[in-house]
Design a protein around this nucleic acid. Sequence first.
DNA 1: AGTTAGCACTCAGTCAAGTAGAGTGCTAAC
DNA 2: GTTAGCACTCTACTTGACTGAGTGCTAACT
Lengths: 344, 344
Amino acid sequence: MAGELDERKQRVLRAVIDDYIQSAEPVGSRTLARKYDLGVSPATIRNEMADLEMLGYLRHIHTSSGRIPSSKGYRFYVDGLIPPAPVGEEEKARIDTWYRTRVKRIDEVFQETARLIAEITKNVAIVLAPQMTQARFHCMQFLPLDADRVVAVLMTDAGFVENKIVHMPAGASFSDFQRMSGFINERLAGRALSEVTRGAFRELHEAMGDEAIFDAAFSVIERALDDTKEERLYLGSTTHMLDQPEYHDVERVKEVLLLLEEQELVKDLLHAHMGDGLEVTIGQENGDAHFKDSSLITATYHLHGELLGTLAVMGPTRMEYAKAMSLLEYMNDNLTHVIRRLEW
Amino acid sequence: MAGELDERKQRVLRAVIDDYIQSAEPVGSRTLARKYDLGVSPATIRNEMADLEMLGYLRHIHTSSGRIPSSKGYRFYVDGLIPPAPVGEEEKARIDTWYRTRVKRIDEVFQETARLIAEITKNVAIVLAPQMTQARFHCMQFLPLDADRVVAVLMTDAGFVENKIVHMPAGASFSDFQRMSGFINERLAGRALSEVTRGAFRELHEAMGDEAIFDAAFSVIERALDDTKEERLYLGSTTHMLDQPEYHDVERVKEVLLLLEEQELVKDLLHAHMGDGLEVTIGQENGDAHFKDSSLITATYHLHGELLGTLAVMGPTRMEYAKAMSLLEYMNDNLTHVIRRLEW
DNA sequence: AGTTAGCACTCAGTCAAGTAGAGTGCTAAC
DNA sequence: GTTAGCACTCTACTTGACTGAGTGCTAACT
């Protein structure tokens, strides 16, 4: 299978794809002969292209008018022919200074990472932020707010803090809450948040007796659980994709944007194609018919060896794979560092 | 000035605008006579329209081909002719159930409010979330995280909680932090966050002595100040604007989206046109040339009598003003209730 | 046997001319 | 004051011719 294409066919295929990625126009034998140093005449190239089409690497829109790569063509290209395209120094500088100066909050990091990727690749960027499955209860504290309200603060062992205003039940006093927090901390410290279900809590409930205060504490825990369980999705600026000729038709743009608004669908998509490092999914390789003309590049990032989330670029199959791939790799490294540095 | 237009002219003007808003096509005398019950012939309508054009209420693209409203025309329409368009019952139901069931966190409320407005009006929706200028320091607490880290938690008197992980300086122990929080709470309770500048803090610093712990505490306060000072901007789905024929050209879409990405610019825009209740700014009435073909409707919302933020709809001057206005009013009311109910 | 030149053929895109339709403005009649 | 009629204007659409880029095939060349 790998020997299916001799060296010249590979060079032709690569030239076709490079040119098409750059011009977005079907590419013909003459152009190819002129622009690329293939050392043979257009006629020969025509023959080679006909072969490549027969083998499924290229496609014909109609008789006459040049060839465009098929998914199989792109796949071969990505797997072996792709020219290295390291991230430009200016871009690196831009990214680095941004990370160094602007970053304050963790969600800003994700949002801006997505924005930067979208801007540089001129495609849709998606960042899937960590799900903290392993979050463990560290401690809970109540702080008095005013005569009838208390703020419950919960902290996980990673230093993630959740809080919620709760109304003090009639007849209760702040010291009841303090007593409650003592009980809770004693029983729950170190327990995985996901274990702290209503059921596991019941025992505590009975020990405590006071329904209202129990509910208050429980509601913060629930919220924290919700929050840590949830994977957040950040979309990079969807403006830049409009630079791609593929999206010069508003209908297609609308189609893609509506899909992207379905957060669950996007998450599923990312999960499905989330590989170990860099993963490229091209056109029809993706099951969903909606994405048959789109490619997806995903890169997963890690913290302390644990898989955390995903960076992705989605664009037309005609995409600057090399550039997007090296950019994702670069951002991937950066993100890990920044997160470690920030610690929230 | 108000008597400039007799009753029939007003009816013609209104018919022109109603029709144009609905069809997005220049409207001619014949169509008008056919579709609207004006009781006169096309020729008469032509005369009236010629007058209206002379007076600046209508415009001509070119000789022949119908009229379209000018900014002045829309202004007159909005100020007096506009037909009431109460929010539909199905839409109300949709909004209400959403608010009742889905709302959990305050930022979700703003984001989804923007999304709903955009979806229903098919235009860009903008929500400017409260700036808590009046935030006052309530208390600060340090919670031990592990051997060398502490979480600083700050609460404002509105119950807004801010937190930050800080590294324990070498040689310091957790009890140093506790002592520090005692000092801080004593001195700062009730002070406006904005007063707590580095300068005002100096006195405290000197009383304390320990530089590193001082910095830790100060960094949380700074972050809280940043956070409360910041007005957050939520953009409703920018997908729906593509339904407007005005945005069938990708170039125009890109232009608008790029503008919207400039958060500071958008904030300024909203501030400039933020009136007491419902405010409509039409086309050129807006100073900025970028918005000369766009209208902006803003509605401010309040909590406990204090002006908090703004809901806005931005779209082409040809916009369903009546619908957008009543929707904003409805959302305005809802938002106030939901915020009060949530209390974060 | 592989490579190339030449030629007939196919399409997409562009341009000009012609046509239909919608609309205006004006004038004269009601 | 209102309306009918008519000449005129402009846009949008269609048609046909033309051009340029490209293909596939055949025959000649190395």
